[in-house]
Amino acid sequence: MPEQPATDPQVSIDLPDPALKRPTLSHPADPAGLHALMAATPARIGVGRAGPRYTTAAQLLFQADHAMTQDTLLREVAPSLLAELALFSVATQVCGGKQEYLLRPDLGRKLSENAKEEIRARCPQRPAVQLVVGDGLSAAAVEANLRQILPVIRHGVLSAGLSFGVPFFVSHCRVGVMNDIGELLQPDVLILLIGERPGLGRAESLSAYMAWRPQAGDTDAQRDVLCNIFAGGTNPLEAGAYIVQLAQTMRAHQASGVALKLAT
């Protein structure tokens, strides 16, 4: 053992965020052309190679994006956000955490008895529009969009002279939970905002599922969906306005899903 600690090697590593899209392929035949190709798609092209494998930078960026997605999946929606937006929270019949949620889609489609009681106690029956928020497969999607989209929908519905039910949050929820909520509160239009299955490095997409008077036995054929709601896709403000418009169309035709398509 040396008596003195080893001298600090003259290495300084201080990296910028690597997420910026630039080619890791060296010596392209047509550098300007390569930039144009890469600009045409979000896919990971122009990445180059080390033998038949990826360049180090491209591989690490892929792994970083996967890591971000994995961390999101295991996370619950921050209670502070729900408090800030005055949403009370209920649960489905999933009681074994995220793992049970993933394995038992049937339980995620049903409200627990406690949830039913609480909803009955806190929400008025038969509103024109009832809004519900669910975590689905991405807490990040709820967190990224809810602050913007919720007030737009509330304001839009009230401005149209319609009653807006007391909104709430359902944890570990699947789209099919709409049927239970429909039976319980009997709204004309039910809107469920729910986090989508994350893509690689893209966990912020929210979907809005909507149905006219949902009831037991309804399927996706009775529902309409607006997906890809996030700042880089369908902007949450625009999405909110569209959702209000669609709710009015559903009321006008007393239908949703395939039946609404046939009616309009």
Binding site: T41, A43, R44, G51, P52, F62, H66
Partner: peptide, 22 residues
């Protein structure tokens, strides 16, 4: 064969152009 195995439309991951080459 998908660019780096990351399908930007189907939002799933599979094998890549590089993988078959390797």
């Amino acid at each position: 064969g998908v660019p780096m195995g990351d399908d930007s439309m189907l939002s799933y991951q599979c094998t890549s152009y590089h993988d078959t080459a390797a």
